[in-house]
C-alpha cells in the first residue's frame, strides 16, 4: 500500500548525496511539487538522473538553478542555461548518454539485468569512455544499469494502493523510474479510491510505489 503524504514530507526522504531519478521530458511529466519542496529543503550534493535538464523555472531545472546537483546523467542540457553555465564552470559534472541508451539503462536496472549491448554511439567520441564488445562481427557498447535512491515521478491518477496511470506524452520516463529506485514517490494530479482505475490501463502497479503526493497547481 502506498502512503499518502505531502510534498514537504516527501522531500525529507531525499538525503544529501542521494541519486535521484526524475521522470519528465522538457518538464512534461515532471513532479513539479516534489521538486519545489526539494528546492525549499535545499539538500545539496545530489546526483541527478533525468532525460534532460528541463528549464530554469520548470522541472528539474529548478534544482540546478539552486545549485543542489553535483553530477548528472542525462541526454540533453540545451534548454537550461544554468546547467550549461555550471557544466562549463566545472561545478556540475555531466555524463551525456544517448537518450535511448539512458532510458534503457534505467529500465535495465529496474529489470534486474547486468547491462545491455547497443550499437548507438559506436564510431563517435563516446568510444573514449565505453567498453566495446564485438558480437558476430558487429560492434556494440556495453551499457551498465542506472539505479537510484529515490524516484520522483508524476502521473495523472493514482489510487490509494499506489496504482498509477499516466497522461499522453507526460508518461515518458516515469514508469521506468518507478522500477529503478529504492524509494518511489509519485506526484499525481488526482488521487482516487482503490478499485476506481481500470486495471487494464494501470501502467505502474502499486507494488512499485511507496508514496503518493497530491499535486497542487
Amino acid at each position: 500500500m502506498a502512503k499518502i503524504i505531502d510534498a514537504k514530507e516527501a522531500a525529507s526522504l531525499v538525503k544529501e548525496h542521494d541519486r535521484i531519478l526524475c521522470g519528465g521530458f522538457l518538464a512534461s511529466g515532471a513532479a513539479e511539487n516534489l521538486i519545489d519542496a526539494l528546492v525549499a529543503q535545499n539538500t545539496p550534493n545530489l546526483h541527478l538522473c533525468v532525460i534532460c535538464t528541463d528549464f530554469p523555472d520548470r522541472g528539474v531545472g529548478k534544482l540546478i538553478v539552486n545549485k543542489q546537483i553535483k553530477s548528472a546523467q542525462t541526454s540533453h542540457i540545451g534548454t537550461n542555461k544554468a546547467t550549461q553555465e555550471q557544466y562549463n564552470a566545472g561545478t556540475l559534472k555531466i555524463e551525456f548518454n544517448p537518450q535511448g541508451t539512458f532510458v534503457e539503462r534505467i529500465r535495465t536496472a529496474g529489470a534486474g539485468l547486468g547491462g545491455f549491448l547497443t550499437p548507438v554511439g559506436v564510431g563517435t567520441i563516446l568510444e573514449n569512455e565505453k567498453e566495446l564488445i564485438e558480437v558476430d562481427g558487429k560492434k556494440f557498447f556495453l551499457e551498465r544499469p542506472i539505479s537510484g535512491d529515490v524516484a520522483l515521478i508524476r502521473a495523472a491518477k493514482g489510487d490509494k494502493s499506489g496504482n498509477l496511470v499516466y497522461s499522453k506524452t507526460a508518461q515518458n520516463s516515469n514508469p521506468l523510474m518507478a522500477m529503478a529506485a529504492k524509494i518511489v514517490i509519485a506526484e499525481v494530479d488526482e488521487i482516487v479510491e482503490t478499485g476506481e482505475l481500470d486495471p487494464d490501463l494501470i501502467a505502474t502497479p502499486g507494488l512499485l510505489v511507496d508514496y503518493i503526493v497530491q499535486h497542487k497547481d
Binding site: C52, S75, H76, I77, Q84, P98, G100, G121, V122, T124
Partner: peptide, 14 residues
C-alpha cells in the same frame, strides 16, 4: 555549444 545528443544518435543508428 554542448547541448547533448538527446535522441539524435539513437535515431541516426536506428
Amino acid at each position: 555549444m554542448v547541448p547533448g545528443m538527446g535522441g539524435a544518435m539513437d535515431l541516426c543508428v536506428g
